[in-house]
C-alpha cells in the first residue's frame, strides 16, 4: 500500500495535507482498495462547519457505503466536484484527488493525527 511521506493520516483512513491555514482531506490508498470500485461520493456544501471525528460525507461502492469522518475541525472552503461525475478518481489516484479543503480552526488537532510510519503500522 502506498503511504506518501508528506501527508498525515487518521485512524479512519483519511489523509490530510496541510497548506498554511488550509487542509486538504482525502482517503488513503488502503481505504480505496478496501472499498473496491467507488461509484458515488457525497460532498458537504462549501461553508459547512466540520468537526474532528464527525462525518462530512459518504463514499460508496456497489454494496457498501462508508461515512467519511473529518480528521480535523474547521469550515469547508472547497469540495472536489469532479468526484461527483467521476468517483472512480478516488480509485485511480487517491492522493491527488482530495475530497474537501478545510479552513483549519485548531492547528493543535494536527498533532493528534498519525505520521506515515504510524499509519503504515496501522494498516499492516
Amino acid at each position: 500500500m502506498n503511504v506518501p511521506q508528506q501527508l498525515i493520516y487518521s485512524h479512519a483512513h483519511e489523509w490530510v495535507k496541510v497548506d498554511g491555514d488550509r487542509a486538504y482531506i482525502g482517503i488513503t490508498d488502503y481505504a480505496q482498495s478496501s472499498l473496491g470500485d467507488i461509484v458515488f461520493v457525497e460532498l458537504p456544501a462549501e461553508g459547512d462547519k466540520v468537526a474532528a471525528g464527525v462525518t462530512f460525507g459518504v463514499v460508496e461502492s456497489v454494496k457498501a457505503a462508508s461515512d467519511l469522518y473529518c480528521p480535523i475541525s474547521g469550515t469547508v472552503v472547497a469540495a472536489n466536484h469532479a468526484l461527483l461525475d467521476n468517483p472512480e478518481l478516488l480509485n485511480t489516484d487517491p492522493y491527488t484527488n482530495w475530497i474537501i479543503a478545510v479552513a483549519l480552526s485548531d492547528h493543535g488537532e494536527l498533532a493528534t493525527l498519525l505520521t506515515p510510519e504510524q499509519y503504515a503500522e496501522l494498516i499492516k
Binding site: 458515488f40 460508496e60 456497489v62 454494496k63 457498501a64 457505503a65
Partner: peptide, 11 residues
C-alpha cells in the same frame, strides 16, 4: 442499493 436497509441499515 446503498440507499436500502440491507446495506445502509439505520441510515
Amino acid at each position: 442499493q446503498t440507499r436500502e436497509q440491507h446495506i445502509r441499515r439505520e441510515k
